[in-house]
Structure formats: C-alpha cells, structure tokens
Write a protein that binds this DNA or RNA. Structure first.
Lengths: 155, 155
DNA sequence: CGCCTCATGTCAACCATGTTGACTTCAGAG
DNA sequence: CTCTGAAGTCAACATGGTTGACATGAGGCG
C-alpha cells in the first residue's frame, strides 16, 4: 500500500494559514471538489465525464440550441466540442435536426435517456448543495449566494 | 470576428432554471472561474499554470516538506508531480536538499523568487474573495464559510 | 444558374495534465 | 553486502484542450 489513495476523499489538508483568507481560498477548492465528486463518479460509470455533463446540462436548459450557441456558452472551440458531442449523439442521449425554417443550423435536444443522465448527474451536485443549505438554513444559503455572485462577477 | 471570444469573461450564461438549486450549482462553477481567472492569467505570463501554483502554495505553507508528503497532499502521482516540480526547481522558485538527519527524503522550500510568485498568484485569488466579503460584511462571509465547509466535507 | 456566405463537420498537429507500469539510484539499516 | 524506502526516470497511454486548414450543405442573391 505505497499509495495512500483515499483517492476521492483527499482530506482537506491542514496547511499553515499564511493569510486570513487562505482558509476561504482552500474552501473554494475543496468545495468545488466536494460538489462534483459524486457526480463525476456517476458519470464515469456511464463512460462520460465533466465535458459531457456540461453539454447535457446546457442543452437541457436550452432545448433546440444551435451548435454555435453551445460553443459560445461552453467557451470551447468547435473542435473541442466535436468529440464529446458526437459521443452523446451516438449514444442517443442527444438528437440533432435541422430547424424547419432556419436550415443552416442544427438544433440539439435531449432524448429521454439524455434527460435521465443529465438529471442524475446534476442531482448528485444539487444533493450536496441542498444538504449544505439545510445545515445553515435559508439566511445562510442566501448569504452564500450573495458572496458567490460577487466572486463570479469579479471579472 | 467569428469567435465571440470575450474569452476570459465567459459571461454567466442565463440558462433556464429547471431546479431551484440550479442557480447555486452554476454559481459554484462561475465562482471557481471568477476566483482563479486573474491568477491563471498572471501565472501564464510567468510560463506557469495551476499545478505549479498548487505546488508553490503547499510548499509555502509547509516549508521543508518531503516530496512524498507533497504527493499525498496534492493527490497526484509522483510522475505527474515530476515535471512541474522540476520546472520550479530549474527556475529556482524552489530548492530541495537532503535533511540533516533524515537523509532519505528531500526537503522542499521556496526561494525568495518562489515566495514572490506564490504570493502574487494567491493574492489575485484572495483579492477576489476579499472584495466579495467586503460587499456582504462579516456575517455574510461567515455564513459563506459555513456553507462551503459543509459542501467540502460532503464526502 | 453560378457564386457568396454562414454554420457545421472533419483532419492533422500539437500541448498540458494526468494515469500505470517498470526500472534505477541513492542512502541509511542490518 | 544486502535489504529497504524515498526519490527519479522512462515509456506508453488517455483526455481535453488548442490552431490551422479545408470540406460540405443550405440559403441569399445577381
């Protein structure tokens, strides 16, 4: 047992805090990991990963989205989108069809199977959030959202 | 201008919310991006990236750490650590030396230059957090920490 | 009809970050 | 001198990105 390999857990290392915000900084890191861990495990079991989930997530919330718009939202190149997208089409988690009038673009939509996978993966993430929110109550949750909005819009 | 390429910004896409926690879920995503964006840009200018920063961050808070411990904390394989670590040593941002009595392991330490880079990169991240905390006040910040701890320890 | 444009698709080369597995080297312990 | 533990190194591979170049398919229009 050379490798410690609690692997997934990766206990929040207790490092000396050089600055008062170091704890918050590390919490952001471990928070992201904590939220996505179970979802990633579920996705891996389906032979999928984070990029696939991101596609499913967006298409679920923008049915009939065109590929170009998807590229914009995901912020990756069309070549980078290509492989995961084709996998999802092959697996019939997504369908694409030309729109009736706007024939130039293809419209993406989730199949029932795709909805199921998207929902289960996202559920894992939402479950973590829900439990955390439950622990601190509605005011705490609202405060969290306020801080995260400020951080997200920092740029 | 085929590509929209607000690149770094990647405006928080306004997606239809299918669940009440979707907003929180997306905030975690964009929060992480928001916190790390400027730091990553700074690191890129130095020819470094996130893994290098993680090494520097840990070594800064655990001077004289052995390589094996660093591997454990970072949660990656020794081969994965190898390249970024060697780059940092070549660039003289880190030093390694055998310990006086425990000659088997090498101890890592930041050089003055290494400290500078670590500090500047982390400062970018702390700045984002500080501004967000300032906007919501101490109670909001405390609530945020509480939620993040619950999320981080979900596993 | 022929041509232009736009959205999409595809191919190739490349890079960074990670993985396993196998092997070497160095240094102290016995 | 041999064993062991920490570290270093080499090779093969997977994944998720990048650019650049080029092909295809469908309207728009002169």
């Amino acid at each position: 047992m050379a490798k410690t390999s609690q692997a997934a857990g990766l206990h929040r290392a207790s490092l000396t805090k050089l600055h008062d915000l170091d704890a918050a900084l590390e919490l952001m890191y471990y928070g992201w990991r904590g939220m996505t861990l179970e979802a990633d495990e579920y996705l891996a079991k389906q032979g999928l990963s984070r990029p696939h989930h991101r596609i499913l997530y967006v298409v679920a919330r923008r049915p009939d989205i065109a590929i170009g718009s998807l590229i914009e939202i995901l912020g990756i190149s069309k070549q980078a989108l290509n492989r995961p997208l084709n996998l999802l089409l092959e697996r019939k988690l997504l369908t694409s069809k030309r729109s009736p009038e706007q024939h130039r673009s293809k419209l993406l939509r989730l199949t029932a199977a795709g909805q199921r996978v998207e929902q289960r993966a996202s559920d894992h993430e939402r479950k973590v959030l829900r439990e955390a929110f439950d622990r601190v109550g509605a005011p705490g949750a609202a405060a969290w959202m306020g801080v995260m909005e400020a951080i997200a819009d920092a740029n």
